[in-house]
Simulated assay, not measured.
Amino acid sequence: MASEAELIADLRCATGESPVWVAAEQALYWVDIPNRELLRWSAADGQVSRWQGEQMLACIARHGDCWVAGMESGFFALQTRPDGRIDSRALATIEHQLVDMRMNDGRCDRQGRFWAGSMALDMAAGHPVGALYRLDRDANDAPPRPQLDGFIVPNGLAFSPDGRTMYLSDSHPSVQKIWAFDYDTDSGTPTGRRLFVDMLDHPGRPDGAAVDADGCYWICGNDAGLIHRFTPDGRLDRSLAVPVKKPTMCAFGGSRLETLFVTSIRPGGDLSDQPLAGGVFALHPGVAGLEEPAFS
């Protein structure tokens, strides 16, 4: 099924990421990682608001009328201010293996636990020091422990509609795999890691993802300008194009959760063939998504 991509925000984000639809506001939020920004697009009037943080913002999840976020040094609670700044409070500090690291892709499971991966800033070096962390509701002063490790760029985190399958990818060019895990919804523990999709067999590196109401997994094919839909058994169902080479993450939203929003990267160099790089796009794939869980 074809779906023409509509540009909704031509903001030229350096690395747009982590789109989250807030139904109560009929608005899309996302981040621009290196510019340390939280952004909001209103569906009612198309207006965009921006707030500046103190560290790079990598991933966000709603928490009441505030946010939790994975940033450079760990997990934070965020509150936006009228002056365009963000008040941030550390919730849990991550003990990274290297000095120059940050959090990357993340989201809540169906029970409201916040998960996020970590990565080295020098992605090209290929250091396998990335790990996946869980922010528990009863977190104490102890730093969170890695729940899974050995990744270069952990990405594509998503959960099946019943919450019992967790998906995770590594988007580094030397890996490009997506795995599925059995997920214990009571303890928040992933086990039974298995290959779900080898993205070396498909165009694009696996980046951010979303799951629809049918349980199909949508993954951004970074470098290929495509959004792929895989069925729960790992079969490629369809691919939708966006007018940029580096889509980063997708999220369902809109009044009936039937719009697929896609963020993107604006790389350096000649962009004459993709002047809209860094923008946010809307697709209408003909299927509905799921409401994104908030942190509880």
Rank of each mutant, 00 (worst) to 15 (best):
Ile8Tyr: 04
Ile8Ser: 10
Gly16Asp: 02
Val22Gln: 02
Asn35Ala: 11
Asn35Cys: 06
Arg40Trp: 04
Arg40Asp: 09
Ala44Met: 00
Ala44Gln: 09
Asp45Val: 05
Gln47Asn: 12
Gln47Lys: 14
Val48Lys: 14
Glu54Ser: 15
Glu54Asn: 15
Gln55Tyr: 04
Leu57Met: 14
Arg62Ile: 06
Cys66Arg: 14
Met71Cys: 13
Glu72Tyr: 02
Gly74Pro: 08
Gln79Gly: 02
Pro82Phe: 05
Arg85Asp: 08
Ile86Ala: 11
Asp87Asn: 13
Ala92Thr: 03
Thr93Ala: 13
His96Met: 10
Asp100Pro: 00
Asp105Ala: 07
Asp105Glu: 10
Arg107Phe: 01
Arg110Phe: 00
Arg113Pro: 01
Ser118Ala: 06
Met119His: 03
Leu121Arg: 12
Leu135Gly: 06
Ala142Met: 05
Gln147Ala: 13
Gln147Ser: 11
Ile152Tyr: 07
Gly156Asn: 12
Ala158Phe: 02
Pro161Val: 11
Asp162Trp: 01
Tyr167Trp: 10
Phe181Ser: 05
Thr185Trp: 00
Thr185Gln: 02
Ser187Phe: 08
Gly188Cys: 08
Asp198Tyr: 03
Met199Lys: 06
Gly204Asp: 03
Pro206Arg: 06
His228Trp: 01
Arg235Ala: 14
Asp237Gln: 11
Val244Met: 10
Lys245Gly: 14
Pro247Val: 11
Thr248Phe: 02
Met249Val: 13
Met249Arg: 14
Ser255Arg: 13
Arg256Cys: 14
Arg256Trp: 03
Gly268Gln: 14
Gly269Asn: 09
Gln274Pro: 09
Gly278Lys: 04
Gly279Ser: 14
Gly279Asn: 10
His284Tyr: 13
Pro293Ala: 04
Ser296Ile: 07
